[in-house]
């Protein structure tokens, strides 16, 4: 059983990562953003026009809503349902890996 890998495109910053949809859920509030799974560059949405600047001292990407690590337990890669919920389904690609 393979899980779908949802991504926008290959990362323009590092060239090797995939810009994927990351979800953070805190206090029943869902935040979606685009995160490179290799260099951890962040964008606000799949248009990838606006970067989320990391704090220079941070080596972990932080959620812009709750400021918790995007590698924390409250965060995960988006499912197809969550991508639909964010209204981003037509802006992502889905690969079987």
């Amino acid at each position: 059983m393979t899980s779908p890998l949802i991504y926008v495109e290959s990362c323009p910053v590092c060239g090797d990562g995939l810009c994927r949809i990351r979800i953070c859920v805190t206090n029943q509030r869902l935040t979606g953003l685009v995160l490179c799974d290799e260099c951890e560059t962040m964008w606000t949405d799949p248009s990838m026009q606006e970067r989320i600047a990391p704090s220079s001292s941070e080596t972990e990407p932080k959620c812009p809503t709750c400021n918790q690590s995007l590698w924390g337990d409250q965060s995960h890669w988006a499912s197809i349902g969550e991508v639909c919920l964010l209204g981003w389904f037509d802006r992502v690609r889905i690969a079987k890996v």
């Binding site: 890998l5 991504y7 290959s10 060239g15 090797d16 995939l18 799974d37 951890e40 080596t59 972990e60 590698w71 690609r93 690969a95 079987k96 890996v97």
Partner: peptide
């Protein structure tokens, strides 16, 4: 090399590049 990344540690993260992921979309060095 310290804690961080999806794998929990940077050393674990870069370890991904010691083997191919042929079905991963795009390039994978």
């Amino acid at each position: 090399y310290g804690p961080g990344s999806e794998e929990g540690h940077r050393l674990k993260h870069i370890e991904r590049h010691l083997e191919d992921q042929p079905s991963r979309p795009g390039p994978h060095g």
